[in-house]
Nucleic acid binder design. Structure first.
Lengths: 246, 246
DNA sequence: GGAACCTCTCAGGACCCTCTGAACCGGCCC
DNA sequence: GGGCCGGTTCAGAGGGTCCTGAGAGGTTCC
């Protein structure tokens, strides 16, 4: 079976083969970071640096999804999108865009089922959006948990952005939510602070690992408050989330 | 089963296969945006840029419906309409027309049960009109909710453009109505302001996301006033509508 | 021509989120 | 015991998000 590097089953195509994703960005460093994170999900990745080679690569790879920087050196996003759809009509597209980009350039481009994230983004967010897109488009087989993550009596609904423990609703800030999602996607697995920082915080974040400790403490107050703890510290190594009674 | 990208069941042909829609517009960007939105409904889409290729495409695709720009470079809408009907007599047509177009000519065209929207339109409106058209023409199987949307004790009758909560009638302006419809068609799913702007506001709207907040506040005053709130803010993410007691 | 309505912009203000700095706490090693 | 280190917690500044009210411009309908 096709699995991720972390050992859990990968989201695959309906026939069980790895999902195929094309990453298009003119910044090679960023493209590398992105494809690393997506490869980690067990997917088959290819990269391109401009619109023309993106279309060429798509013709060969026939990807299930494309991660597409809107600002490319040679073409505009609409043209690439159109070309991609003629290559493969049902392809999903996740756009990358600068926060201060002229909004109407983006406007409409995501009007379909497609989605976008603004730079600077966190890898966890890109992966989550991509998984959501692929799941909803029926491109992915439900080998994983689907839109719902569970650890013990703690449940997260990613689409509704709702978290409950023992049926009781827990309100989380955006960062808290993303941190908890990362933990819950890797249950029973010790995650180092550096790993968490790389995944949950955006790639240009300069701060130190102290933030992670801080947000873990926020999470504990909301998730573990007065109950059997799910979040555990592993001194010198990092943090784990795991069910209370294994 | 055939489903939309948002996961809810799609409106399909009577035999269960996806509805086939042809989009005809000479502006390729607009055609792309439109087909994206219609693909999102789970339908099979094809595009054409002028009258001649529209008729050719129709001969191949045998579409259930056609979205047709009245102003085409080569032919006028009436000629295309006539040609389309010789290809497939029972085809539904949704016309796209400029606001200042001669209204009685359009009225004459649409007398046969067809419909039209004026540019600039919102995607939500195009989709809704098309769904209504297909439903009334008996082209579509009622796998979805039909003309009535329900979230808790809030009920919207799309055809009558009537909204009630707990039986009490709520008066809404056109924009308020369309915003609420979009929310109610995606219950329990967090919708970002950009997403809402893309679907509910017309494609040429240049303004910023602030309008969405404003209209959400209008809706709350009318829909949630003094009652258990159905519309919720998810800070940093968007808005959701969901029943009070799940 | 006027009134009512709808839509959108602008500015003010409340609140929340995020991160920093610093104090505190407990285990571990010398 | 004393110092050190990793981790936890608290307090607070700052920045951002979101809500609201006032009002201008446009449209529709008498």
């Amino acid at each position: 079976m096709n699995t991720t590097r972390s050992g859990r089953p990968a989201l695959t195509r309906p026939d069980g083969t790895p999902l195929r994703v094309l990453v298009v960005d003119d910044d090679p460093d960023l493209a590398e970071v992105l494809s690393g994170a997506l490869r980690y999900e067990g997917w088959q990745i290819r990269t391109a640096g401009d619109g023309a080679s993106a279309v060429a690569a798509a013709r060969e790879l026939l990807p299930d999804a494309v991660v597409l920087d809107v600002m490319l050196p040679d073409t505009d996003g609409f043209a690439v999108l159109r070309a991609l759809h003629t290559v493969k009509a049902d392809v999903c597209v996740l756009f990358l865009t600068a926060r201060d980009a002229v909004e109407d350039r983006i406007k409409g481009i995501t009007a379909g089922g497609d989605d976008y994230v603004t730079k600077p983004f966190s890898l966890e967010e890109v992966v989550a959006r991509l998984r959501g897109l692929l799941r909803r488009a029926g491109m992915a087989r439900q080998l994983d948990e689907g839109p719902r993550l569970t650890v013990g009596d703690l449940v997260m609904d990613e689409d509704a952005r709702e978290v409950t423990r023992g049926g009781e609703l827990i309100e989380l800030s955006p960062t808290e939510f993303e941190l908890l999602r990362f933990l819950m996607r890797n249950p029973r697995r010790v995650l180092s602070k550096a790993q968490i920082l790389d995944r949950v915080w955006s790639y240009d974040f300069g701060g130190r690992a102290h933030v992670v400790e801080l947000y873990i403490s926020y999470l504990r107050k909301k998730v573990d408050a007065g109950r059997e703890p799910l979040i555990h510290t592993v001194r010198g190594a990092g943090y784990v989330i795991k069910p209370a009674t294994p």
